[in-house]
C-alpha cells in the first residue's frame, strides 16, 4: 500500500470526525488497518509523517488525541 494513500485515508478519517468524536492514535490505527488490510505499523508510519509535517497534531483533553491543527 502506497504511504500517500494511507495518509489520505487517515486525514479523511480525522476530518470526518471533527466536532463528533476526538480520535485517539489507537482508534486511527485500528480503523485504518482494518479498512485497508494493512499492519498497524504501516498506519503508525503514515501517521508519524502527518504529525511531523504538521498536517495533524496531538492534543490533550484528559487523554491524548490526534486532531487537525486550529487555523
Amino acid at each position: 500500500m502506497d504511504k500517500e494513500e494511507v495518509k489520505k485515508k487517515i486525514y479523511a478519517l480525522v476530518e470526518k470526525s471533527v466536532g463528533k468524536k476526538k480520535l485517539k492514535s489507537s482508534d486511527i490505527q485500528k480503523t485504518i488497518s482494518a479498512e485497508l488490510g494493512i499492519s498497524r505499523d504501516e498506519v503508525k508510519e503514515a501517521l508519524k509523517d502527518l504529525v511531523d509535517s504538521g498536517t495533524l497534531i496531538y492534543t490533550y483533553f484528559g487523554g491524548s488525541f490526534v486532531e487537525i491543527p486550529p487555523k
Binding site: 492514535s25 508519524k48 504529525v51 511531523d52 504538521g54 497534531i57 496531538y58 492534543t59 490533550y60 483533553f61 491524548s64
Partner: peptide, 16 residues
C-alpha cells in the same frame, strides 16, 4: 490547562 502538548512531531513533553 490542555491544548498544546509538545513541539512539532511530538505528542507530549509540554503541558499547556
Amino acid at each position: 490547562h490542555g491544548g498544546i502538548v509538545g513541539v512539532r512531531g511530538y505528542g507530549g513533553g509540554v503541558i499547556g
